[in-house]
Write a protein that binds this DNA or RNA. Sequence first.
DNA 1: ATCAAATTGACAGCATGTTGTCAATATGAT
DNA 2: ATCATATTGACAACATGCTGTCAATTTGAT
Lengths: 161, 161
Amino acid sequence: MKIKPTSDSAKSMTGLILEVFRLNGALLEAGDSLVSDIGLTSARWQVLGGIAYSDEPRPVAWVAQDMGLSRQAVQRIVNDLKKAGLVELQPNPRHARAKLVLLTKEGQRRLAQASERQAKWVEELAKDLDPEDIANAASVITAASNRLLGEKSIRRQDPKT
Amino acid sequence: MKIKPTSDSAKSMTGLILEVFRLNGALLEAGDSLVSDIGLTSARWQVLGGIAYSDEPRPVAWVAQDMGLSRQAVQRIVNDLKKAGLVELQPNPRHARAKLVLLTKEGQRRLAQASERQAKWVEELAKDLDPEDIANAASVITAASNRLLGEKSIRRQDPKT
DNA sequence: ATCAAATTGACAGCATGTTGTCAATATGAT
DNA sequence: ATCATATTGACAACATGCTGTCAATTTGAT
């Protein structure tokens, strides 16, 4: 078989990709264990955060849009969160179906707990690493993401089109 | 609320984490579209690669171990691949149940196609990026992963313990 | 005011990964 | 040789995400 020449950039990039997969997995796992005893999972935590993100209560579809997740994915999680009493629905004067989602007291409490813990966790994770290096790494990764996502329309709702 | 001081490292790290999530998603999506018309998905492609990785055919459990995925996840994919005719099972002289998995001709063909395409793809993705920068980014990410994974035993099989 | 198009939640089906349980099979200590 | 333990695949339940379809509701152009 003929040897295919591979550029240095490509070789480095292949390594980077593998490391990104690895870190992604590690982060999800860490996130889960970080909040599991608060009765949360990474996904629920994320959605809870997405809901709390805006001052005004919004419909599920809007939250999803902002979070870059599909409408239905968020919908399901919200349903779960509602069952768990961390979230409640408010009538929407503008739209009969699209009720407004907001955190319950309990939801706020849990999210605050998670956030606090997360802050300490990141602090620990970043300890002794050079902020410059970290920022540079983020730049490279952003560049790669943009290259991948840039070409296609950044659609995230129903692909009904 | 009292403002919590946050170190520069932690701030950078938070940004990096978000970018890693973003790139991870972009990579999966790119991977899927890269091989979809070959009749593969990212997951199947990965497993196919894991099987081809060793010279000797191995049982599913071993492949899973090597890939850092759970035994059952790989098992299910392998079952699918078998149905699709990309993989076949060979009797294992050492173990009656743990049959050996190997690629069929067709499986090899598809994998080769995917690999070739992937090489070009990475080349394009890395184009104009400094290999040094990429390598540095990978280092930072590796450091973070190690910090997260390092503490716990790197177990990946049944947690029956 | 009317009617086509967009938005939205409900429901359902699929892909992927995890975990737990079970039975068959090896392995290893005695 | 025997028996506890580990490995392994099958099966099932669950979490998470995606997509498609449908009906209710809004919106907007006319």
